[in-house]
Computed example of a mutant assay.
Amino acid sequence: MGWLYPFRSRPWAEIAAEFHRLADARPAYRPMAEIVDSVLGSGTVLLGTTSLGDLIVVDRPVPRAPWGAVVVSGPWSRRAAVAPGRVRVEHVGADGESDERPVAEAVPLFWCFVTRKFGVMPAAQVS
């Protein structure tokens, strides 16, 4: 399992600007901006992109297909049914798993998945 098309990463600063613009217009996107901010401040080697408002994250080097990813979705998502006030983090791949939590737990939940699936931990302590 996993995605079969090539992964095309985007600069984290560009992803951050996108989610901050979205969060300014729709506060439901605030957890996405917070997750991206935590990646920017972490010193990690993760690669990211977006798809219809979802955040898609992989580890370096750029994976060849089929590849797995950690995907973060919210109530706006077209790929995952997520209740208002919640965020869903899932690993899409051969050993896929997911968890949905209140938005206040978005950043720690994201790092839990990234650490378990990619072995990547933020350089700074993430709360």
Rank of each mutant, 00 (worst) to 15 (best):
D24P: 05
A81I: 14
R78E: 14
D59F: 04
I56V: 13
V70E: 05
I56M: 02
S77G: 11
A94I: 06
P102C: 03
A23C: 05
F113E: 10
P63M: 01
A13T: 14
V39E: 09
R21K: 13
D37C: 00
W3L: 14
P102Q: 07
A81K: 10
F113T: 04
R60K: 08
F118V: 04
P6N: 08
A28G: 14
R78P: 09
T50H: 07
A65Q: 12
L47W: 02
V71C: 10
R88F: 07
G2I: 01
V92I: 09
F113N: 07
R101Q: 11
G41R: 04
S9I: 01
V103Y: 00
V87Y: 02
E100L: 00
T49S: 09
A69H: 03
G41H: 05
R26G: 07
D24I: 07
W12P: 11
A69S: 11
R8N: 12
L52H: 13
D54G: 01
V89N: 04
L40G: 09
P122A: 06
R78Y: 14
S42N: 02
V71W: 04
W12A: 03
I15H: 01
E34L: 09
G93E: 03
G74V: 10
V71P: 13
S73D: 02
R86P: 01
R30S: 10
V39I: 12
